[in-house]
């Protein structure tokens, strides 16, 4: 739990007395996640041509960050947590994308 000092510092954030969103908010997030998943699965049935992979990636990233931001509370917590997590994430993506490139993964699949 972040301390009360940090909540006071973040005055631009809606002034909530407690750190975390309400259960109703969690349900809203879950519904959005569910809808996104349904859309993702729909691409299996509906042919959208070359837009397929970009669409899937966008939806995946949105889902990914919604869970991280809301359920894992990164939105509300100390930014150092986000920094650690994002460092790992960015490092992993960068390093492995480069490694896959040397396998000519992107051109040959």
């Amino acid at each position: 739990m972040s301390t009360t000092e940090t909540t006071e510092e973040q005055e631009e954030v809606v002034h909530d007395d407690h750190d975390h969103p309400s259960d109703a908010k969690y349900f809203q997030i879950a519904i959005i996640l569910g809808v996104l998943t349904a859309l993702e699965v729909a691409t299996y049935y509906v042919d959208i041509g070359p837009a397929l992979i970009p669409t899937l990636m966008v939806m995946m990233v949105v889902k990914f960050f919604m869970v991280a931001a809301w359920f894992m509370h990164l939105r509300f917590d100390n930014s150092l947590f986000t920094k650690f997590f994002v460092s790992g994430l960015v490092l992993a993506v960068a390093v492995y994308v480069i490694a896959l490139s040397t396998f000519e993964f992107w051109s040959k699949g």
Binding site: T3, E5, N78, L80, F81, F85, S87, G88, L89
Partner: peptide, 27 residues
């Protein structure tokens, strides 16, 4: 020092590390 609990900070550091683990497996 930072006002964050040790445990939670440790968990986040660990999760950062896990990104590299799953990244390697996915690659």
């Amino acid at each position: 020092t930072t006002g964050m609990s040790h445990n939670k900070l440790a968990m986040w550091v660990f999760l950062g590390s896990e990104c590299l683990l799953f990244g390697a497996l996915i690659s």
